[in-house]
Every structure is written in C-alpha cells, then in structure tokens.
Design a protein around this nucleic acid. Structure first.
Lengths: 346, 346
DNA sequence: ATTTTTGTTGACAACGTTGTCATGCATTTG
DNA sequence: CAAATGCATGACAACGTTGTCAACAAAAAT
C-alpha cells in the first residue's frame, strides 16, 4: 500500500497525467465533468501531490521561512502562530529560522537557506527587517520577502512590509502616565539593535514635550529588552535624589524587572510607583499587580505579513501592494495609578 | 548566474555525475585524489545539493517534524531550540506542527503531513507522545518517531523515547515543603490530557505517605495547566476552614496564579503561604518572590530525543537504543519558607 | 462547404539527484 | 599464464511532477 501518485489517479479517472496535474493545480481549461471525475479519484485514493517532485519540476516551492532573533518566547510564538495560520490555509509548510542578527554572514546564510531548502519566501521579523544591506542583498538575489518593522509610517522604499507604530503607542502610554499626574517619569531603553527601541523613546519624548514637561536625562537609562536590565535600571532610578514617580519600561520584561526591583525595595506598586510596560505579553496579565502596557497584535501582524508575502509571490509585478500599518493599543491595568504626592508646584 | 548543479561540479572536476554524488554523500569507494578534486570544485562553485531532487530520488528526506500541543511558550521555545540545535548540526530542516491533541483525525493528519512534506521523522512532545493508538498508527505506517514522555522509567515497549521522571521531582518538591514544617499542603492538578499531571500527583502522594502525613482530599483541587486555574484553585483553598500553609502548583503557571490569588487576598508570600511550581520557566525567576520549582532541562531533553530519532533513522534494526531518562532538579527560591505557625501537635 | 478559431486533452521531455548495474583496470589466486 | 577477484568509475534509468507543444473535436466565421 504505497503512496499513490498522479499516475494512479490518472489511471483511475481515465485521463492523462497532465489533466490530473491541471485539476490539482486548479488550472483552467478542464471540462467540469472531467474535473469532477478526477477529483473523485483523488479523494478515493487519498492522493496528495509530492512536494519534492513538484518543487523540483516547477522551481516553485511550497514552504516559507520565518526569520527572527528575539529572546522573547511570547513574541516568537505569536509570530509563529500568525504565520502558521496562513500556511495552513494555503498549504504551505513553514521552516523556522532563529538566527543571530549581528552575524556578518547572515545574508549568505539566508540565501543559502532559501536555495537549499527551496523556500518560496521569507518573513523577516525585527531586527533583521531593519538591516538595509540585508534587505538589498536579498532583493538583489531575487529572494521574495516581507518585513515586519517598527515605523510610524510606510517607508515606501519599494519593498513589501507591515509596519507597527510603536512611537504612537509609546506616546499614549506616556500620556496616560502624565494624565495621572506624573511628571517625573523614568524611561528604560530596550536594545540598540531593535529599531522599536528608539521609536518608543520618541513617543515618550513627544508626549513630554506636548505636555511641556522638561526631559530630565537622569531619568533615562540605557539597557536591553531584558528582565535584568529592568531590575538594574530601576535600582539606578531609585538611587536618585529626586526619584521618578512612574517608570515606563520599553517592554513587559523590563517592566517586570522594575516591578521586582520595586518590591525588593519595599515599595507598594502602584501607590509608591507606577509602572508601564509594552507588548501585552501574558506575563503582564499575570504579574501582581497586572501591568499597564500596549497591546501589539503580533499574531494578526504576522498573518497580514504572510498574506502580503504570498500575494507578492503570485504576481510578478514588483510594486508592493497592501503594505499595512498597525498601532498597538493602550491597555490600562493595575500597575499605574494617580500620583500620590503631587509635585510641589501645584 | 543560476544555481550550480551536480552537472557543473562533474564537468569542472572531470568525473561523472555519480562520482560527485558519491563524494557529497560520503560514500566509500572513491579514490582520495578524486574526492579532493571534487571537493575543490564543490567549494569553488559554492554548490549545494538540491533537497527536492535528493528526496525525490532517494525517498529519503532531510526535514524533521516537531509535533506539540502545549500552550506554554517557554516550553515550546525550549523544545524547538533543542531540536533545532541538532538539525543545524546535521543539516536537517525542521517543520513545526502545533496541533490539537484531542482531534480524532490527528493520526491521519500526521501521516499526511509526513508523506506530504516528506519528513524523515517526527519528534512527539506530550501529550501526543502518550496516546497509545496514535503511536501504534504511526508505527504501522512505518513512520519514524521519537517520544518525549513523562514516566518514572523506560516503558520498554519497543518504541524509542526519552522519559522525564516528573514523579520523582514532585516528590522532592513535596519533601522540601514537608521539611520546612508544612503538613497541610495544597495540590493543584494540571490537565487531564497530560500524563505528567498524574505523575506529579503521585510524587506528592508518595512524599506525604513517606512522612506519614495523611492525605486530605479537600486540599487537592482539579484544574488545568493554566494561570486562571491556579488563581481559582487557590481561592478555593483559601476558603477552607483549615487552610493549607503551602500550595504546590503542578506547573509554574498555576503557581503564578496562586501567587496572584495570595496577593489579591493580602497574604505575604512566603510568610503567610509557601508556593512551589514546576518547570523553571523564566517566569518563576522573575516573579516576586521568585518561585521554588523543579527545573526541567527541556532543551537538553529535546536534543537527546532528536539525536535518538536520527540514530533510529540510520540503522534499520528497530530495537530502540539509547532511550534515556531525565530527572527535573529541585530549585529552591524565595516562595517557600519555614511554616510560621507550627501545627498544634508539636 | 471550407477555413479559422476555440476549447479540451494528451505525449513527451525535463527538473537534479541517486540506485543499479556494467565496465575497465590492477591485483591476487590457482 | 589464465582465471578470478577487488576496486574505482561511469552509463543509464528512475523518482513524481509540470511545462511545452501538438492533436483533435466542436463551434464559429468565411
């Protein structure tokens, strides 16, 4: 009982190989009667076309690659499940490819991957999606891709992308804190290597400016998107003479670190300190108190990106269509509250 | 500048196609001189064999499938990275396949997946690895697989597996609580669908028995491996007349729920209540206080399982070799402490 | 009635690789 | 010295599919 081939289907439905091929590829020019007969045979034999043979012959392929370099499991899983959901619907396979975004050989690694595993295209998550020379290398090799990137607007650079307006959302978070009466708001940076990091900072900066709150450099701490940097950064801020009454961590993990530092320092959140994160990871719901944050619809974003990639695969005109922007939404939970001691000025 | 093929290599090194094939597959019976000449040509052309053609012709394949149904991103990511690390070393690709373990059509779905994407074999994570009829279906279809399962010892059922002794580790955790003076220890179950759940319960049960502590059914709450069930279960226990002084959640997520419930109820952990989890997810380090738990070396386990699968692929004798057991290790952090009010008896 | 067009189908080669078997040469054996 | 063996290599077919092009019938245009 070996695997049925197109030959078996052809024999059973009394047509040629080619006609079967036409039916399973939904090509036009087959009589409805014939099509139905073939489809019945396909169903009866439980025939499934062989991907290797298919892609060998047609030089097309039926697998996508998902390229990321992100230590955050929640983010990665959401990414995967968004891409996968589209793959399931369209019959594509998915190869995941975590990698090191700082590797100088990344461009070669990716083109080897695509050629070698015959991938139809790549979904590039940040920060790979932000490396200009990588993008151009891929484009030069005629490798199809779509980018997910952090930007306030469509870069209009001719390559397809889905962009997420982190700046806007960071503005909302900062504004939320300001409206609670906070004026000394600490900001903990994410990594240098992700463009989302400066974007979020810009949002923070802009909100302060709009509310005429002077930017105090001592309240701004560099660091990475990690719990430990959140912890350390918070400690640094706590040691200040004039402590912040609120801290905005560039992502939930940083915020979790701040939360831990606050508790270690005997503070009562949110009364002694308001804390906000970014991302809406499950962690933010499950910490105590639950974190105010910005909800990124990562799965939805990944879905859209994948759809976009597939669309660009179909049509060979290379003008990108359907680039789309997303805006994370403010989610107010229990880690932010009205400032307790209003600034002496009021 | 199209992709070089085996033909180009053959032409360049002045040998036949077949000899090149022999070289790239490391087959014996090629003169060292010839081999070197071919290898030089391969390097010069940057030739990479085409996987589609390879697997089409040889019916072998160069991709594995990872099958799981687990809502826990930390676990899944560790699993993936363990399997991937072996794939990288051996040149295999990886297709991930999250699925619904309760689907009745799962067996068909998996065999279709394997045939369709020409997978060389499957790594089955719990709970798929525990479904007897699924295992037998796959074996009957001659699909290679390896199981990761929760069991105290090698099942010796003729199919390859890596087993994790959850019972033993749960014993250790319970013992740790007992040695801190706790005698009323709540137990929150994980899901019905994972065998790890009863295994962990057995460990709890056995430790109580060994220390002659009567098992109080009111302290045992059913539920799933989720934060919400941890939260609800804890509330239920708190409502008891004779409250537990410690709670053992079947995984870290449950324990996180307990922690949240304790804080919501104004308790001070660990002084008012000791809490232990299971898994050593990053969450357990980052919560406040950090959770006492059992560290599962998931990545290492996945690595070993993959290696085992690959080994069983090489040799066709079907006696499984190298089945291996792992034992999670107790990790004591800050969420467990000596009981404050010793039982009246002492 | 004949030619052209349109629509449906099939024969055949090709994709890049590996398995089978044959070839030729050098070495050992009787 | 002839025959048998071993070793390195190559010719060729095959894997399952799709692209190209030709064949044919029916319908439409002349």
């Amino acid at each position: 009982m070996r695997k049925p081939t197109i030959k078996d289907v052809a024999r059973r439905s009394r047509v040629s190989l080619k006609t079967v091929s036409r039916v399973i590829n939904n090509e036009p020019g087959v009589l409805e009667r014939t099509r139905a007969r073939v489809q019945r045979a396909v169903a009866e034999l439980d025939y499934q076309p062989d991907q290797s043979a298919r892609s060998l012959r047609s030089a097309k392929s039926y697998a996508l690659g998902l390229v990321y370099d992100n230590p955050n499991p929640y983010y990665v899983i959401s990414l995967q499940s968004g891409v996968l959901s589209v793959c399931r619907e369209t019959g594509y396979g998915l190869q995941i490819h975590p990698c090191n975004s700082t590797s100088p050989r990344l461009a070669d690694e990716l083109s080897a991957l695509v050629r070698n595993a015959r991938l139809a295209g790549l979904v590039l998550a940040p920060p790979m999606s932000e490396r200009r020379e990588l993008i151009e290398h891929l484009a030069a090799e005629k490798i199809a891709f779509v980018r997910i990137l952090s930007a306030a607007e469509d870069p209009r650079d001719g390559y397809p992308c889905v962009f997420v307006d982190d700046r806007d959302a960071a503005y909302d978070i900062t504004e939320h804190l300001i409206q609670l009466g906070h004026t000394r708001i600490g900001f903990l940076w994410g990594g240098e290597s992700h463009r989302s990091s400066p974007e979020r900072f810009k949002g923070y900066e802009a909100a302060l400016k709009d509310y005429a709150i002077p930017l105090d450099k001592k309240l701004i701490v560099p660091g990475d998107y990690s719990f430990d940097d959140g912890f350390r950064g918070a400690r640094k801020l706590f040691a200040l003479k004039d402590r912040p009454t609120a801290i905005f961590g560039s992502n939930d993990e940083i915020a979790a670190g701040v939360l831990a530092a606050a508790k270690a320092g005997g503070m009562d959140v949110p009364w002694d300190l308001s804390i906000a994160g970014f991302e809406d990871s499950p962690f933010s719901k499950q910490s105590w108190p639950a974190l105010t944050t910005a909800k990124q619809a990562t799965e939805e974003i990944a879905r859209h990106a994948t759809l976009l990639l597939l669309a660009s695969l179909e049509r060979s005109d290379d003008a990108p269509h359907g680039n789309k922007g997303f805006s994370p939404q403010l989610v107010i939970r229990d880690s932010t509250a009205r400032v307790r001691v209003p600034p002496s000025g009021n």
